[in-house]
């Protein structure tokens, strides 16, 4: 196909879009909403994956000490834990230190909330333990729990598991939505193109009579579908990248006070572009092919 032909097909495709504006609007919206949901799901999934990698390397056990354990006893327990096989480090954090840490993590915005707390310091003293091998964290935690003076052990796994189960759920619901919406969007596009084909039936008839090739007649409708897909992908792409960049800068690259690092906006934009534009063009092309096969009949 020559450049001149491609130009013509693209121009005709554009004319088709304008020819039935409302249907075009509906189709573009359907694609845009579909891809917006997919894009947001993708952002969450990518960050969750990154988070899981990060947490794997950070997994630690917090052994909370009973309230009546004295400072000296606490240091004794810490030494005991350090000596256990497989333990990389054990650090004693007194009630006072724990409070200061929390204060720092929450940052200046939340100082007021802590104001009331500072008087009667209710945080328990704890020993923070890291394993040589993060996968041994659980076993070490169980052994520590049996030591006298230890109230309870929080190996963090439960929280992390819950978080991941939640994120999996978000991803699955998102994907289910996307599958349904992709089908709806394809249907809308093929319907839009069907209407265009109908409104151009005279032109099509004459083109056939004077000897235009089948592909020459088909291309404008394929480009119509492709353009719908392209515009439908561009909108959510811009919205998500812009929105994510804003959020990213506000959170300073990490999620809440948990200090989970977020994927940088630039890296995200690359993956997002591949998925959104890829799927957008696919949906558009598919809608075009369906209507050509069913309604153009050449």
């Amino acid at each position: 196909m020559t450049i001149r032909m491609m130009g013509r097909h693209l121009r005709e495709g554009f004319k088709n879009l304008l020819r039935n504006g409302w249907m075009t609007f509906a189709s573009v919206s359907a694609v845009a909403i579909t891809l917006l949901i997919l894009g947001v799901t993708l952002v969450i999934a990518l960050n969750a994956e990154q988070m899981s990698n990060y947490v794997q390397g950070q997994l630690e056990v917090s052994a909370f000490l009973k309230d009546d354990v004295s400072d000296a006893q606490a240091r004794q327990i810490t030494r005991q834990i350090s000596a256990m096989p497989g333990v990389k480090s054990a650090e004693y954090i007194s009630k006072e230190q724990g409070f200061q840490q929390l204060k720092q993590e929450l940052g200046s915005q939340y100082q007021d909330i802590l104001g009331g707390l500072s008087q009667k310091n209710t945080l328990p003293a704890k020993v923070v333990v890291k394993a040589d091998d993060p996968r041994q964290t659980l076993a070490i935690g169980q052994r520590i729990a049996q030591l006298p003076g230890v109230e309870k052990v929080n190996d963090g796994k439960e929280v992390v598991d819950k978080l991941f189960r939640f994120l999996d759920l978000v991803r699955n619901i998102g994907l289910a939505f996307v599958v349904g919406l992709v089908i709806t969007a394809m249907f809308l596009i093929s319907n839009t193109i069907r209407i265009t084909i109908f409104s151009r039936r005279r032109e099509i008839e004459i083109m056939k009579l004077v000897g235009a090739t089948d592909w020459f007649i088909r291309w404008p409708f394929l480009t119509e579908g492709l353009l719908i897909g392209l515009i439908g992908a561009l909108i959510p792409f811009v919205v998500i990248v812009f929105g994510y960049r804003t959020l990213y800068e506000r959170f300073d690259g990490s999620f809440l006070a948990l200090a989970f690092p977020l994927i940088s906006a630039d890296r995200l934009a690359g993956t997002l572009a591949e998925v959104l534009f890829g799927l957008g063009l696919f949906i558009g092309l598919w809608g075009g092919i369906v209507s050509i096969r069913r309604f153009l009949r050449i």
Binding site: T2, R4, M5, R8, E203, I206, M207, V210, G211, A212, T213, F216, I217
Partner: peptide, 11 residues
């Protein structure tokens, strides 16, 4: 002109 355009006749 339409009859010529759609069979790819040079402009």
């Amino acid at each position: 002109a339409f009859a010529l355009e759609v069979i790819g006749t040079p402009k």
